[in-house]
């Protein structure tokens, strides 16, 4: 099983570096194409109470369900 923090656990305003995506090929491909690539920094802009979250990667803003965000593994960036 995969251990370690994933994107869905980040709080509003937190940033982290993407370390990998654990998902079937098709889904992984899709997430990567939308900008969720290993090595890039992701920031959680907002989270809704029950629904999706907004994530910023560079110039792109995405809304994604937590279920999908949980597939994106991260390492926490040092606080700035």
């Amino acid at each position: 099983m995969n251990k370690g923090p994933n994107l869905s656990s980040l709080l509003k305003g937190q940033r982290a570096t993407i370390t990998g995506i654990h998902a079937p090929d098709g889904i992984r491909h899709r997430l990567q194409a939308m900008g969720l690539r290993t090595g890039r920094e992701a920031e959680v802009v907002r989270r809704s109470r029950l629904g999706p979250m907004q994530v910023r990667i560079g110039s792109v803003n995405l809304i994604m369900r937590r279920r999908d965000a949980a597939r994106v593994f991260i390492s926490l960036s040092p606080a700035r």
């Binding site: 899709r30 997430l31 939308m34 999706p52 907004q54 803003n61 995405l62 994604m64 369900r65």
Partner: peptide, 11 residues
């Protein structure tokens, strides 16, 4: 649908 729900939020 097994597609992930990820949508770009345009300005």
């Amino acid at each position: 649908s097994d597609e992930p729900f990820v949508l770009e939020l345009p300005p």
